[in-house]
């Protein structure tokens, strides 16, 4: 029965940890559903264009914020871990935009050269 007593001890230890509440989880779920619904509304009620794409990208970043912050719990981690994840991601987005802009220009010049 020693092992049984051991289990109860561990149970008590973990019970002291801050307990995430299901209310927050479901709230995040409804926010994500709502944002997706808004995306669909824009997809059907607005003509394609740069503005619509900007709205889509904005809503996507909102959704990413809720998934990473709440579901992956990053919002509640230490500041050091938040920065360790965020800084490379921001640099990655910069790289992505830079590659798209420069790559488009480069691709066009190569294409025009052989035209």
């Amino acid at each position: 029965m020693a092992s049984h007593a051991h289990h109860t001890d561990e149970f008590d230890e973990t019970a002291n940890l801050p307990k995430p509440q299901t209310a927050v989880i479901w709230k995040t779920f409804f926010i994500l559903c709502g944002l997706t619904a808004i995306e669909f509304a824009f997809a059907f009620m607005m003509d394609a264009g740069s503005l619509r794409n900007a709205i889509f990208i904005g809503l996507t970043i909102f959704k990413a914020f809720y998934i990473v912050g709440e579901f992956m719990h990053l919002k509640h981690e230490t500041k050091g871990l938040i920065w360790a994840v965020l800084i490379p991601t921001v640099l990655l987005v910069w790289l992505l935009v830079a590659l798209l802009v420069e790559g488009t220009f480069y691709g066009e010049s190569v294409f025009n050269y052989f035209k």
């Binding site: 973990t14 994500l32 709440e70």
Partner: peptide, 25 residues
């Protein structure tokens, strides 16, 4: 695609609920 998105978001919610249950042992 909307249906697939809903299924995946739902699976994410059930995953967090599993993690939360894990905290409570």
């Amino acid at each position: 695609v909307a249906l697939m998105t809903m299924i995946l978001i739902l699976s994410s919610v059930t995953m967090v609920l599993a993690v939360e249950a894990g905290h409570r042992m």
